[in-house]
Design a protein around this nucleic acid. Structure first.
Lengths: 251, 251
DNA sequence: CGCCGTATTGAAGTCTTTCAACGGACGTGG
DNA sequence: CCACGTCCGTTGAAAGACTTCAATACGGCG
């Protein structure tokens, strides 16, 4: 168990949905904290709870979500090993966090965290950067939800998760999907059926192949990236052309 | 002009799309900076530009947006007088900012800003809070885009803008809409036609009445709030009921 | 006063959702 | 070790919401 946690810890992430960057000095803050365990479906905290702690995820995956008064659920992100959770909170948690599988975390009190950050000139930029990355990820998600169709959404999601898996040291292009289809649907703003249908469509196209229920193997990564619709992420040429392209319509 | 700018400056905002809080000590940073003027449709900065400055909006409205490679545009927020722009940036701007009408801003170099923040124990929490508010707003927008239909989206938007107008000292329930329908559409993830149709539907219901092209008068504020679908924003009852409500489907 | 860009309205089309049934995997218990 | 039940995922068909295409109307500005 210890060895396992150690290897997981050495993993890092970049560009993931909510807050995951490469290992930085922030992790040293948690190094001495004891680990805590959560089992699948266990809730770490509720939306509206007093935001007392900041968490480092050592192992496993969490979903962070909001529930609307009428019961509709929105998943605003998935958090994996190496991610830090709770930096951008106010006095109350703005969403709920729930374990998808078995999760190991370390906890730091908000007070202690703020004290450390105030006193360290090295920590401050790291915190700042992390929040900025979180914000950028949130913007990406808004773009996805505003303009992308089902196929583009799923491809975007799979691409990000694939990149994460590869950074974690995966040797094959296999994307682990510990969450259920409903989680994916609630994250992408689709229904479970549409996710399922789109997945089989991608399989038929030869983009991917199911690898058990909770993983997919990516067969054509370039095609996946094209279908994701992010293209080359805004190149210089497009920029100068922008002015004349203003009349283009939405969607 | 000066007097006008002064009154505008005393305005504050809370809970607006991207970054607008009540007046706080951050504004003192800009007090000595000279004002700059932008005319309608003028671009303050481009997505991808080196993020050299932080801005305080003294007057007017900006749209912040991202352009996808294929030309699709997403507006991730509108910024009004009193808002501060650019705190959550990395080394490059993650979106473009463009004036909707005539805009007055003050500018502070990123370097100077960071220096001030590092040295002031009062400024740091203010910056932190602002970024957290921005994050919360981004999450709200994700919820809107994920789960809400056209009517709910438009009502949510109008409600936020109405609250802002009232805080700014508006005596009547009139929402100024300096942006075009296309802007609203790109912000809400809809088409211009759907925005238009939904607007007239709301007028027929007696919720609002057009007041020229760039303003609407809200006639039934409570109904507007109900139609926005945010309800009472997550009450305690619902929370305990959540566990048993897990089987609910998306949308 | 007339023009041009913006907004509204109508009708058809498309994508996703909804409703419904089936299939398959996993875990428990016999 | 297999049987069975349950949960999750897949597939099909119909319905619905929004988009798209197209024409018309409004409103500000020269």
């Amino acid at each position: 168990m210890f060895a396992q946690a150690a290897t997981t810890k050495s993993a890092f992430a970049r560009q993931a949905p909510v807050s995951s960057q490469r290992r930085d000095c922030l992790h040293t803050l948690f190094a001495k904290q004891p680990v805590e365990h959560l089992s699948a479906a266990q809730i770490l905290f509720f939306q509206g709870d007093a935001a007392a702690s900041i968490f480092e995820i050592v192992q496993g995956t969490l979903r962070i979500m909001r529930i609307l008064p009428d019961g509709r659920r929105v998943i605003t992100g998935f958090l994996h090993a190496g991610d830090i959770l709770g930096i951008s909170f106010k006095s109350q948690y703005i969403y709920s966090a729930e374990a998808i599988n078995d999760v190991v975390i370390r906890r730091l009190s908000r007070k202690a965290f703020e004290k450390e950050v105030a006193s360290s000139d090295e920590l401050r930029p790291a915190v700042f950067k992390r929040m900025s990355d979180e914000m950028a990820a949130a913007q990406d998600q808004m773009v996805l939800l505003s303009t992308k169709n089902a196929e583009e959404r799923l491809c975007s999601f799979l691409l990000v998760e694939l990149q994460r898996a590869l950074r974690m040291g995966a040797r094959e292009a296999v994307v682990p999907l510990p969450m259920t289809r409903l989680d994916i649907a609630d994250y992408l703003g689709l229904t479970i059926e549409t996710v399922s249908r789109t997945m089989t469509k991608l399989a038929n196209k030869g983009v991917l192949a199911a690898s058990g229920r909770h993983a997919v193997k990516i067969l054509r990564r370039t095609l996946l990236a094209q279908l994701a619709g992010d293209g080359d992420e805004w190149d210089e040429d497009r920029r100068s052309a922008y002015g004349s392209a203003e009349e283009r319509r939405a969607h």
